[in-house]
């Protein structure tokens, strides 16, 4: 898929998706990563509401940018960055949006690769930004087995 196919989508966003942060989801996530921290499990230890681990926001649904031609397989997660404005708590209702910030092409030993940089944000019900993620997804022309 050539770079020109992605360029018209730079600056476009998904419609915000409502995500409810459930206690059980935080506990299951903490179990899956093997982190015994009680603030992910025990409401009292956490001061009333459970706290989500630092990478938990990657599990939210950020919606899809309409018509963005993302291949269904062969994508590589190249980089991930989080910027935190406050902790995420159980009971939070967050509105999550994804924006394509940048696309670029690079020729490497594996052939031509296209880098897609997304800004994902989660905003709470008062409109305050809670977390911003920047993620880089790499598409290899010809797919993964090329």
């Amino acid at each position: 898929m050539p770079l020109q196919d992605f360029e018209p989508f730079v600056g476009r966003s998904s419609s915000p998706v409502r995500n409810e942060v459930e206690r059980g989801a935080i506990r299951k996530f903490a179990d899956a990563i093997g982190d015994p921290n009680p603030v992910y499990r025990d409401v009292e230890a956490a001061g009333g509401r459970l706290i989500a681990p630092p990478t938990f926001s990657r599990t939210f649904d950020y919606g899809r940018i309409p018509d963005l031609p993302l291949p269904s397989a062969g994508l590589i997660h190249g980089e991930q960055m989080f910027e935190y404005f406050r902790p995420i708590y159980s009971g939070d209702v967050l509105y999550c949006t994804s924006t394509l910030r940048e696309v670029r092409e690079r020729n490497g030993r594996l052939g031509t690769m296209i880098f897609l940089v997304f800004d994902n944000t989660a905003v709470d019900e008062t409109g305050e930004l809670v977390v911003r993620e920047t993620l880089t997804v790499i598409c290899r022309e010809g797919g993964l087995s090329a």
Partner: peptide, 24 residues
Amino acid sequence: AFVGQLLTDTVGAMGALKTFGVRF
């Protein structure tokens, strides 16, 4: 997430962490 645990083991999970980014 494992590296995230290293960070929260060091400074707690209550909001001390400001940014965290990695390359895979």
